[in-house]
Every structure is written in structure tokens, then in C-alpha cells.
Amino acid sequence: MPVRRSRLNFVNLFLWVLGGSILALAAFGAFLTIQQGRLSGDQWQTLIVAGIALGSVYALLALGYTLVYGILFMINFAHGEVFMWGAFTAYFAATALNNAGMMASNPILAFVLVLATAMLVSMLVAVMLERIAYRPLRGAPRLVPLITAIGASLTLQYTARGFYGSGVRAYPDFTLFDGSIALGPVGMTVKQFVVIASAITIMVLLYLFINNTRTGRAMRAVSEDKDVAAMMGINVDRIIVTTFAIGGLLAGAAGILYTLLFNQVHFFMGFLPGIKAFTAAVLGGIGNVIGAALGGLTLGILESLGPNLLLTGYGIPAPNQLKDVIAFSVLVLVLIFRPAGFLGRKENV
């Protein structure tokens, strides 16, 4: 008896051809680039380190998407804006401390203070978002909260624009973090080191929190089954708010780390990192905490390395213009070939 599990239909064929040719082109591009020796070993290393630094910011943001998704099965489209508010807050806090001279006299305390205010404000924004925009719509058809989220995202963006103006603001420098250091053979700027180290610390703390505290266990229970969790006496509403709050804290941290790397804040800055962090969450397997971290790092490295590795070989001009195309292509490819991501559960897609 013939066993036919799935058919090779037009759509599948098209997708495989599309995905296969993108991968083949990418591989061939990488081959050409390496063969032509466009970049030196040092340059590769620099790109990879930059990618890891950027990727750890994406990872922090992706965790916010994944935590919320794990519990509510909704994409918090406005998460990028929560991040932007954190970055703006960090900017004002840093400027105030700088004017007060604290940044020069006590730089480490200043950094911690800035980090704390940014995280706090992002948390407040995230909690307000949940309370005003999402909670009333729990249980509504899927499109409804998604559209609300898009609306909330615009509202937050343009409120920031109205409050703070539409210009790009340059960050005051943490002179403490100037210069570069070497970890063994790998050299990096101090800023990159601070970003990577802070991100790793925060992620480890989060992991411990989820696995070892009562609230963390309750969060996992709610993400397994809301109704059962409620029957076990868990206050589901409170857990959901907590999840948003944690996502907000992480986004705030991501906000200041991102501005450390790029040195400027702008009301529209949340959009692209938001989408990319979502991509990272999908890449790692949405709903999965470790997956989000892995996905973030992968995407950061791909974005940093990708244009140079995959495109220069073809002699494409200004490949860095196309780095966002690479990130979006990753999203599309993952959803075609492995919608569950690295570590996700299949039924979530």
C-alpha cells in the first residue's frame, strides 16, 4: 500500500524553489566573498563582535515578545515602542546626571541610575499598555488585539514625538566606557563589552527568576494552561501584568544598551529593532525563553555579517543598505522552512 503523507503540490514546490534558491544564492555569495578575500580576519572579528553586541540587545527585546506570546498568544506589536520610551528616558536621565556632574564624579552609580530609571519607565509603559489596550480585549477575535497593538504603537510613537520633538538627540558620552579592551585574542570596545555583559547578566537573572521563584513558576503554569492555573488559585490577571512588567523592564534595559551602541535617540527608533526582535523570537521558537536569546544573537550576527559576507561577493554596491532586507528574509525563510523556530513547539504556529 503506498504511503503518501504530503503531496508535492504547486505551493510547496514554489516555496522550496524560492527558499532553496535564496539559500543557494546566499551560500554562493558567501563563497565568492571568501574566495575574493574582501575582508581581513580582523574585520571579520570586528563584525562578529558587533553582531553579538547588537544581538544581545535583540535578545533582550525578543524575550519580551516571547514571554507575552507564551502567555497570551498575541504579538505585542507595541513592544518596540516600550523600548523607545526606555531609551528616551535613559537619554534624559543621562543628560540630567551629566549636567549635575555625576557622570564624571561617580560614573558607575550614574550608569546604574540611568539603567534603573529607563527600566522603570519602560515597565510603566508596558503595564499601562496592557491595562488600557489589551486587557479589555482578552478573548476577542485574533485580529482585534493585533489592530489595537498597531494603534497603541502609533500612539506611543507620536506621543513621544509630540513630547520630545521629532529631532534626533545625541547621547551624552559615558567617558567611562570609552576605549577598548581585549578578552584573550578578541578585541572589542568597552561599550560592546558592557552591552554584552549586562545583557547576559539580565538574561541569567530572568532565567533564575522564571525557574526558581513562585511567580516564575506561576508564569509557566499560566502559559501551559490559563484555566487550570486559575483553578489552582493563581491570579491570572496579576501574572499577565507581571509578564508585561518583566517584558517592559527588559525592553528598558535594551533601550539604554542600544543607545550605548548607537549614541542617539529618536521617536521612530523602536520600529526596526522591534520587528527584528520579533524575528529573533520567531527564529528561536516563539514562546521559548532560551530560544529568544539564541534567536537574538543569531539575528544580530547575521545582520552584522550578512551584507558583507553574502552580498559583496556579487559586487552589489553599498551592501549595508540591504541589511534590513537580510533580517526580513530570515523571517520569511524561517516561517517557510521551520515555523516552530529552533526550539519552539510546532502547534504554536
Binding site: P2, V3, R4, S6
Partner: peptide
């Protein structure tokens, strides 16, 4: 056709 049998006809 909402599920495909693992084997059989």
C-alpha cells in the same frame, strides 16, 4: 482529508 493517515488506504 483534514488529517492524512500515517499509513493505509
Amino acid at each position: 482529508g483534514m488529517l492524512q493517515p500515517t499509513s493505509g488506504e
